[in-house]
């Protein structure tokens, strides 16, 4: 095969399209992370509002409940707008999945949000205030919110989903997660 400028020009867009497709899959679907929460120093979720003891120990969840960490903040419109969907998802999944809204907002800001914001007033999911460890560990330099991290009931980090909270990829993702029962959960329908 003779390699010419023509071949190069033909290959360039093809390669870009191919890698774009791979990259889009990473961003929008599941990029399986070979990181395990159990290998970190994180043993509990601290400063949790909307939760009786304000601390969720990972040891209490081990083998029982999968965790969905939704990274967001009260200043992010898209994050706040997605909360009612997560809340209804939590009610539907009850003990199989624990959804935690992870924020870097202060406790005072979260309390004010739960008291004054019309979406906040109706929320029942636990909300973590003042987080830095989980943000640094899971999101690294990416400062984009919302993003969701799924941890299965054995403490394995199994996926990171970016973008829309209520998007199809997240729901498909949940369909393939080992929940508290140790079985894969049947395909979810959009709770909306």
């Amino acid at each position: 095969m003779k390699f010419s400028l023509k071949t190069f020009l033909w290959l360039l867009p093809l390669t870009i399209v191919l890698t774009q497709k791979l990259s889009a899959q990473d961003n929008n679907y599941i990029s399986v992370l070979a990181r395990e929460l159990r290998n970190t120093k994180i043993t509990a979720f601290q400063n949790v509002e909307n939760y009786p003891e304000h601390t969720i120990k990972l040891s209490d969840l081990d083998g029982k409940t999968a965790i969905l960490l939704d990274f967001g903040g009260i200043n992010c419109r898209g994050c706040v707008a997605g909360l009612p969907v997560l809340d209804s998802l939590q009610k539907k999944l009850k003990n199989k999945l624990l959804i935690i809204w992870v924020t870097q907002n202060s406790k005072e800001q979260i309390s004010e949000f739960l008291t004054n914001n019309k979406i906040g007033k109706k929320l029942s999911i636990p909300i973590m205030a003042n987080d830095t460890d989980l943000y640094n560990y899971f999101l690294g330099k990416s400062r984009q919110i919302p993003q969701e991290v799924m941890i299965d009931c054995y403490g394995n980090t199994i996926g990171l989903v970016g973008g829309q909270v209520v998007s199809g990829p997240l729901l498909n993702f949940l369909a393939n997660v080992r929940m508290g029962t140790g079985h894969y959960v049947e395909l979810w329908k959009d709770p909306r």
Binding site: M1, F3, T7, F8, L11, L12, T15, I16, L18, T19, Q20, L22, S23, N27, K141, S142, R143, Q144
Partner: peptide, 24 residues
């Protein structure tokens, strides 16, 4: 043909690098 083997990964690295950048 050898050139293609050399160029393909190079092209992939260049184009995937574009998407690895943090969105700003």
């Amino acid at each position: 043909m050898r050139k293609i083997y050399f160029l393909l990964p190079l092209l992939m690295i260049i184009s995937s690098g574009l998407y690895a950048q943090i969105e700003n």
